[in-house]
Amino acid sequence: MKLFKNLFRSLPTLLAPKIQNCLSCHRAIHRSNNHNAVLGIPHTDAMVRALRRSTNPFHDLCDTCLHSMPWIRSIRCPVCGRATGCPDCSRRGKDHTYFQQNRSAVAYSPQMRDWLAAYKYRGDERYLPLLGSMLLTAYYQLCGEQTRDNMPVKYDCITYVPVSPSRLQERGFNQAEQFARTLHAYTGIPVIALLQRNRHTVKQSMKSRGDRIEDMKDVFSLHIDSRQQLFSKLNLNHMTAQTQLRPIRILLIDDVYTTGSTVNACAKSLSELSNDLNTSILISSLTWARS
C-alpha cells in the first residue's frame, strides 16, 4: 500500500525538469540551450578542449555569479602575477626569489574569500571541481607566455604546498593537493609530493607581512624519497648522472598568494634538488587567488 502511495506521490514530478541551484548564491539556474559554457572566462582553445572532456564545473554557477568573478586578465608584475604594481617583488630582490614567476587565476576578493572559506574551513567539497578548474585559466596563461621555439613549454611535474599532519587530520584534506590533482586530471602532468612541512605555523591569515616572512624559515624541506620519486616518475633513470639533463620544470600549487613567502620557501627547498640531479630546476608557481 505504501508503495503505491509513494508511486502516486512521485507521479507529478516524474517529467519535471531537474532544477539546479547555483553553488554560490543558491538561486535556481535558468539557462538557454545554446549557453556558452566559457562565457566571461578568460580562455584559450586548449582550455575549452580540456573542459569539454568532462562535465564543466562552471555549470554549477548561475550567470550572475559566473560574470562577477574577479579574473586577473592583465598582469602588471611579471614575477608575482599581480594585476597592480607590486612592491613585494622588488623589495625581495632577484637573488632571493627562487621561483620564476607566479600566476593566479583570480584576485582575492571578498566573494572569493567566502568561496575558499566554504571549501577549506567549512569543508564544503562541492566547491573543489570549480576552484580546481579555475586554476586552468592561470595554467594556460602561463603556458601561453612561456614559449620556446614557438612551442609552449611543457611542465615535468606538479607538486603542492604541504600542510602539517595535524592540520591534515583536522581538515581531512590538503586543499593545494586537491587543486594539484584536479589540474592533473585536466592536463595529465604527474603530481609528485616533493615537500613536507616540518613545523606547525599559526594560521597565515592572522599574521602581518613581516611576521610571515620570518615565520617561513625552514618550515619546508624535501620529502625523504622525493629524489627517487622524481626519478621514477619522470623516467630519468636511463640518463647517467654525468650527462647534462635538460632543465626540469616544476609547477608548484597553492591556494592563495599573499606575500609570496610560502611559495618562495617551498621553491627554495625545491631548488636543492638541482644538486642531486645535476641539472637546473625551474619552478613556476600557480595559485588560485592573488591577494
Binding site: 569543508g123 567539497e125 584534506f173
Partner: peptide, 20 residues
C-alpha cells in the same frame, strides 16, 4: 557526499551536506 578523507584513511568517507 563521499570524498577521500585523510582523517580516517577512507577513499569514500561520507559527510552530510544538509547540516554543513
Amino acid at each position: 557526499r563521499r570524498t577521500a578523507c585523510a582523517t580516517c584513511g577512507s577513499p569514500g568517507c561520507a559527510y552530510c551536506e544538509a547540516c554543513l
